[in-house]
Each structure stands twice: as C-alpha cells, then as structure tokens.
Design a protein around this nucleic acid. Sequence first.
DNA 1: CGCATATTCAACCAAATGGTTGACGGTTTG
DNA 2: CAAACCGTCAACCATTTGGTTGAATATGCG
Lengths: 113, 113
Amino acid sequence: MDKHLDEIFAALADPSRRTILIMLLEDDMAVTDVAEPFEMSLAAISKHLGILMRAGLISQEKRGRVKWCKIEPDALRDATIWMQSFGQFEAVNLDAFEKFLDQELEEDTTETS
Amino acid sequence: MDKHLDEIFAALADPSRRTILIMLLEDDMAVTDVAEPFEMSLAAISKHLGILMRAGLISQEKRGRVKWCKIEPDALRDATIWMQSFGQFEAVNLDAFEKFLDQELEEDTTETS
DNA sequence: CGCATATTCAACCAAATGGTTGACGGTTTG
DNA sequence: CAAACCGTCAACCATTTGGTTGAATATGCG
C-alpha cells in the first residue's frame, strides 16, 4: 500500500510523464499519438506509459493493432490524501489524521527504503 | 516552476523521506533525532534532509551545534493543486483548470525531461 | 585547552532511471 | 502474400540515486 505511493510519486516526478497525463485528460490516445509531440523515441514513451500503468495512473486497452491509453484519476486519490493531510494538520482535522499518522509511522520507520 | 514539481514529487517518492515528513509534523527535530529510528547512517539521513530542503518541503536552522528541521507544509501546495486538478476535472471545475492545462502543455511538451 | 557531540563532506559503490537503437511479433491493408 | 504500421523487447549506455565509510568542521563542555 505504501509501495504504491512510491510508484505514484515516482511516476509524477518526471515532467514528460506529467505532460502525458495532462494530454490524456483531454482524451484517450493511442501510444503513437502520445509520442508524437515529444522529441524522444517511441520506445521511450512506451516505457513511460509502462511506468504510469504500473503506478495505476493510466490503463491501456488494445483494440486491433492500436493500444489506447486512458487516464485513471482515482489512482491519484491515495497520493492526494497523503499530501493534503499536511495542509489539514495545520487546520483542525487532527483526529482522522492522527490515525493515519500512527499507521504510517508504524509501517515505515522499520523499512530501510 | 515545473522543475520545482519534479523535486517535490521526487522527494515524496522515497518512503524514508515521507516518514521523515510525518515525524516532523509532530514537532521540529534535530538531525540526529530524525536519524534515530532509521536503520541507516546519519550521513544518509543528512542527504535525505538535503533533498527535502531543496524541494522546499522542510527548512533547517542551525542553533548552536544543533540543526533544527522544520516542516514547510506550504511547499506541498503546488503539488497538491497539480494533483487535485485531475480529480476536479472529472467534476465541474473546468474553466480555471483549462488555463492551467494549456499553460502546462505549452511549457512541458518541448522539454525532453 | 582537550574531548565529546552534531553535522557535513568526499570518495566510493551497486542499483535504478531515462534514454538510444535495432530486431521482433501482431494487425491491417493493398 | 507482401508491405506498412503499431508497439514492445533486448541490449546497451550515461547519469542519478541511495547507501556506505572515514575524515573534516563546527560547536559546546569540563
């Protein structure tokens, strides 16, 4: 569950991948069309899409010889919640966040990344 | 401004660093104390703190021989906004987001990471 | 002053990342 | 069938990342 956060944040850390997500917000796209505006090889884009896939940020469906890429906005929920918690902590939402916090600390402090 | 997002998301992609942020939510801490629960060298933690610093997620202030680490929750705002935009897009908030979107596309598509 | 404490620096290492190219396997079309 | 197209795979490469250790630099304390 936290491995998942690793993958999501890592996926978002690359500007090309964020751009791809923004492009996909407008409409589903084929891999080749995603690659078109970028100055990099199709294979590179294919890799980026794989990373976005594994992070759950997009899904891919092959129809004929074309593979369609579709954004999965729900995948951002975990990460958004994690991040918002910081802002909310300064406000009032302590109770729910305390639980979240304890749980996180328990899970993570022992992992050495 | 988008380089900044790179750094923030990259900083958040490491579980040790997320744990450090969570720890700092409770209180400001000295570097040594941050390092204590982790099974890794002080130098490693020092590096992690440097990364969190450069991402703007924490600040550090040296008092005496102790360097105090303080969380900077505001730094998450940009990233939170970026992420929330995806969720909100599915809802109604199109107008403001369209602008954000166009601007992002213009800036990013030409950068090759 | 001399020693302990707090933190960083430098050099090093293994593994991961982001890119390339060329070959390959499906699918569609002429 | 053959040619073109879509996308991935494999091998390779340079750079970055996350860690180590040992020395160096402040600072505080008896």
